[in-house]
């Protein structure tokens, strides 16, 4: 991780957002931040794997933590070999790794999220909050299309959707990157908590009907975790 944070300092030279009086070092979302985020995510997911699997065991098949841990370990190993030049390429690479290594539904879902977000970022070297919000919107749309879930179905969409909204609002308000990502993480955390009383309408948990109520959705929980790690990496 030392090497990655070292790169982050080199990579974030120029200003990404418009309204950055106080935040002179706001370099936006660049390849170094992306790599720092996803490498730290591997540690965070490994640390939280048991909690995520316990949430999944309550309403699913109990492998969410182990699956994500395997996937993000593969991502971190890939990024350790070399970080692509653009943040979009970092996300596309990560998405592909997750799709081919996770083995559960979260592989295609997170894989599609990151791949679609990465593709939407295009060739930009550093995305400001507005560009990131737009790309992230495309990513969340890809997840919704693949899984067929909407807000309120007790899935990762319940954390992703408010996070995207928060990011869009932050872009309109001219909030700098680090603060915008913190707002997005908070929105995801609240969204994940709000899945507790819901009845699952998608995925394995939907077979449980009303017995799925009273449990936090594991996919929403891991989404909140990953966005918190991103906010921390940008802080």
């Amino acid at each position: 991780m030392g090497a990655v944070s070292g790169m982050a300092d080199d990579g974030r030279a120029e200003l990404g957002t418009a309204s950055s009086g106080a935040e002179a070092k706001d370099g936006g979302f660049d390849a170094a931040l992306g790599a720092a985020w996803l490498t730290a995510a591997a540690d965070a997911v490994a640390r939280e794997a048991e909690r995520l699997s316990m949430l999944d065991a309550a309403i699913g098949d109990g492998d969410h933590g182990t699956n994500l841990k395997r996937g993000f370990a593969a991502v971190a190993a890939k990024l350790a070999e070399g970080v692509p030049a653009t943040p979009g390429a970092v996300l596309v690479l990560t998405g592909r790794q997750l799709i081919s290594t996770v083995g559960g539904a979260s592989g295609p879902l997170y894989g599609s999220l990151l791949r679609a977000t990465g593709k939407a970022l295009g060739e930009t070297e550093s995305a400001d909050v507005a560009a990131l919000a737009a790309a992230f919107t495309a990513g969340v749309e890809a997840v919704a299309k693949l899984g067929g879930a909407s807000v309120g179905d007790k899935t990762m969409i319940d954390a992703l959707s408010p996070a995207v909204e928060a990011l869009r609002a932050a872009a309109e308000d001219g909030v700098p990157t680090a603060q915008a990502l913190d707002l997005a993480a908070r929105a995801a955390e609240e969204g994940a908590q709000e899945t507790v009383p819901l009845r699952a309408r998608k995925g394995r948990a939907s077979y449980l009907g009303e017995r799925s109520e009273g449990h936090e959705d594991p996919g929403a929980a891991s989404t909140a975790l990953l966005l918190r790690v991103l906010a921390d990496a940008a802080a």
Binding site: I99, G103, G107, P108, L146, G147, G203, R204
Partner: peptide
Amino acid sequence: DLGSALLTVKTLLDEGVE
């Protein structure tokens, strides 16, 4: 058979270029 098997297939077919 079940959810993630179908999601994985859909991801493969969507990709096309992969």
